[in-house]
Simulated assay, not measured.
Amino acid sequence: MILVLNAGSSSLKIEVFDAALRSLIAGSVTNLGTAGALKLGEASTAIETRDHAHALALMLAALAEAGYPLASFTAAAHRVVHGGAILTQPARVTDPIIKTIQSVIPLAPLHNPNNLAGIDALRATAPEMPQYCSFGTAFHATNPDVAIRYAIPKTQHDAGIRRYGFHGLSYANMVADFGDALPARLLAFHLGNGASLCAIREGQSIATSMGYSPLSGLTMGTRSGDIDGAAVLRMSKSLGEDETDRMLNKNSGLKALAGDNNMKTLLERDDPEARFAVEHFCYWAARNAGSAIVAMGEVDAVAFTGGIGENAAPIRDRIMDLLGCFGELPVHVITADEEKQIARDALTLMAGGH
C-alpha cells in the first residue's frame, strides 16, 4: 500500500492506495495549530493540533485503529507544489532532493515549506520508509523554450523569472486515464477555484496558461488571471506590495466581479453581476484556448476536469459554444485525482528499482 500525503499551510490530507491504484481510505486534519477536525473515512473527530508533526502522529494513530498500521505501508508519496527548473520528474526523497526543494522555496514560499514539513514529519516517524515526491510543475517541463521564456533580460530569466505552469499532476492523471485512447492534440481545462488550461500534444504539455505563478491566465475564483504588469505596478504604488498581492490572489476573479467565488451559486443567481462573472470566466477560458490550439497546430478533442470542469455543465457548454469556430469537437469529462497520480508516480519509480 502507498500512503499519499498532501501537506498544506493549515491542513494535512492523506489517501491510501493499493498496488492497483484503488483508493482504500482517505482523510484529513484541518486547522493545524488550533482547534480543528480529524476526518478518516466516514468518521470525524474534533481535535487540536500543534503542527504538521503532531497532525501526522494523530492521523497515523487513526489509520492504525482503522486497520492501516504504519508497518503495512510499502512507501509514502508527497505532493510538492514547485520543483523549479531542476525537479522535472517524480523523485525518491533523499537529502539532495530535499535541498533542491528548499532551494526553490522563493518560487513557492506559501507551499513548498508546508510540503517539506509533511516529508520531514514522516521521515522523523518512519526513517526507513521509502518516500517519493511528485511536483505540480513537472508536467510542463516539456514546454519549448519559446513558450517558457518571458521577453525580459537574461539576468532575470536566469534568476528564475520564467513560465513554469501548474496543475501538472491533474493533467498527468488525465493523460494516464485516457490511456491508449488519448487524443493526439488535446485541449485540457482544469477548472476550479484555481483555473488553467493545457495544450497536450502526444501526451506532453507544450503550452499552459499559468506562468511564473498560478495568478496568470484564466479568470479564477479569487485570482485575477492575466493583468498588465504596469497596472500591477500602479496598484502596488498606492496599495503597497502585500496588499496588491492579497487583492490579486484573494479578492479578485469571480469574487471581485460578483461578490462570490462559488460557481454553483453564481449559476443559480439571475442578476447582471453574476451573469457577467460567468461570461467573463467562459470568455477568457475560450480566448486562452485559442492560443493553446495555435501552439498545438490543431485540436482533436477537449477535456474538462476540476470541480467546475466536472460539475458545471453550463460552463462546459458555453466554453464549447465559444470554441465553435474550431468545428465540432469531442468533449470528455475526467475526474480530477492528483493523489492517484502521486501514487502512480511512486509505484512507477518503485518498479524501476528507485
Rank of each mutant, 00 (worst) to 15 (best):
P106F: 07
D226Q: 01
R79N: 14
A343K: 06
D345R: 08
I119K: 04
E48Y: 00
A37C: 08
G168C: 08
L349T: 06
S103H: 14
L182G: 05
A301N: 07
G136C: 02
S213L: 10
E241K: 02
L347Y: 13
T265N: 13
I148N: 00
L110T: 06
A313Q: 09
A301Y: 03
R318H: 10
R162A: 07
L60A: 07
E241Y: 03
D177M: 11
Y171H: 01
A76Q: 13
G179D: 06
G136D: 15
Y212S: 05
A336C: 12
F73I: 10
D245F: 13
S44P: 00
T74C: 00
A172E: 12
A207C: 07
F135W: 10
M129K: 12
A195M: 08
A188T: 11
F139G: 00
R269T: 03
N115S: 11
T222E: 07
T265A: 13
E273Y: 05
L197F: 01
L197M: 11
D345W: 09
D337M: 09
A19W: 00
K154R: 13
R79C: 14
A76I: 13
L87D: 09
G253R: 01
N173E: 14
F189I: 06
F304P: 03
M174V: 09
A64Q: 15
E241F: 05
R234C: 06
A172W: 00
L322Q: 13
L239V: 07
S103V: 11
R50V: 12
D226A: 08
A181S: 15
L218F: 13
L70K: 13
E279K: 14
L322P: 06
A343M: 08
G253I: 02
I315D: 06
P109W: 12
